[in-house]
Amino acid sequence: MTDAAKPLSPDEAFRPPRNQWWDVWDQFKTHRGALAGLAVFVLIIAFVVLGPLIWQVDPGQINIRERNQGSSWTYPLGTDQLGRDLLARLMYGGRVSVAVGLVAMLLGLVIGTLIGVLAGYFKLLDSPLMRVTDLFLALPLLPLLLILVTLFRDVLAKTFGESIGVFLLICFAIAITSWMQTARIVRGDVLALKEREYVLAARSIGTPSSRINTRHILPNVLSPIMVSATLGIASAIITESALSFLGLGFPPDFPTWGRILYDGRDWIEQYPARVVWPGVMISLTVLSVNYIGDGLRDALDPRIRGR
């Protein structure tokens, strides 16, 4: 069990405690899949953020004579049915899709974790909050989104401007309809964890409930949260494209990966590349985030760390 017998170098023996995140990073580095995922994710971010600076083509420029082109030096990934450059559209669309995915996932995660922890830790809040969760699970998603969009779209657009307003609205709409799974999982774990002796020990020390939660309970429910986070990004990107498809999200000429995918769907037999490229981008993002989440989960668990 112990390494007591292992001779320690003088440095190691009197090394002051270092920041735990260094241990996490050390372990993360040993997870090959996670490193690959991180590399791919960084590439995708670079592609959507830096790409347009290098490939300075207007994604909205219609050139009807050049429509439905295949790959060429002028149009590396070809053009769509209106002659817009697919590469430029993928770059601009990626900005929105990745941003929506991350923000909506984070927002949903925060709501879900908060509700889950409150319901699990405080007995009085348990059944009201869980009934609210059931209510949201039972709500039909699309009508709810419809109402949200019609009610708030103009207000938000006026306050924050057209694109930011829609962006916020979509993130909020996706978050509000996707936090329930996280809340349930977290609540179940918190219920089990709060009976553990180390929570009792913290209470005997006099740690207040808020810090018991942040110090002892939350770090130990990190694994399920991490899993639902990585899955959440994928579903957020897909939901965004579904919303755009229904005309509830961004305007039709505004490129997002989901939008490009849906636009290309009608032409899938003649020009499969138009579906394949946005599909590949979405899949790569989801996959890389999944691997990062996997590596992070392992790295954050000290019992696995160092193996």
């Binding site: 002796e197 020990a201 005997s204 006099g206 110090r215 770090p219 000290p302």
Partner: peptide, 21 residues
């Protein structure tokens, strides 16, 4: 909370009473 430093406890299960993280 202010009284807690006066009185402390050693727990039965040394595995379970320490936060693994």
């Amino acid at each position: 909370r202010k009284m807690r430093p006066t009185m402390q406890m050693v727990f039965q299960d040394p595995q379970a009473c320490l936060n693994p993280r």
